[in-house]
Amino acid sequence: MSFKGKVALVTGGSRGVGKAISAKLADGGADVIINYFRKKSTAQETAREIEKKGVRVHLIKANLAEADKIDGMFVEIEKEFGRLDILINNAASGVARPALELDDRGWDWTMNVNAKAVLLCSQHAVKLMKDGGKIVNISSLGSRMVMPVYTAVGVSKAALEALTRYLAIEFAPLGICVNGISASAVLTEALKIYAEAQGLGDSVYQSTPAGRMVAPEDIADVVAFLCSQQSYMIRGQIIIIDGGYSVSPSHTNNAK
């Protein structure tokens, strides 16, 4: 798929799933803006790797929980590129606690990064998508299935999915396609931290009917398709990437 001449922003794009998406879009020739939260050295390393593909890579550090930081990020994008063609709302964070232990600040933090930032980034992006564009929001199966201590994140992802549908309709006359993808547990550093912190052992490393876990590249492949012209008639959909896990009769046992 060719993204030559396109400018893409991948939030949380320096590690894990975001890194795979950044690399995939760069493979197609897109210049990539990578937003990251804190790990500058990791972001710089990712930028060096992706630049080798012959595209321009621009790093922006921004805490997406804060609206003024999102404003600043888009001021920089306009100054550096003057346009945007692809927005991947990938950044995610969250407080991992059971519902009874969630406080208002943990809830707000999770909703701000995972849902509100998606709205704010999309509003800014539309102004820079002068020739139409593509927006892909990254969700997870926790939006509809219950996973241990995933309450706040799961609810924030449900909000992201609903927002995807609303934006798809509102942005359609502007020539902007909005869709989402939802994945089961993806083999990344974030999953290892979640599993260790919750003492979940190997239970999160579930097998799927497809015979393996979802890899970041599986997500990136579908994101690239949703950013291509071939997906023009897909609007407001959440594509599930889980190797058949969520429709397998045994998935409820695997999720414990």
């Binding site: 939260f37 804190r38 790990k39 500058k40 050295s41 550090k61 805490n63 929980a65």
Partner: peptide
């Protein structure tokens, strides 16, 4: 603490 570290990183352009 995450928010404090992030704000200090922004202020001084350092990685903590």
């Amino acid at each position: 603490i995450v928010q404090i570290l992030s704000a200090i990183e922004d202020k001084y352009d350092i990685e903590l």
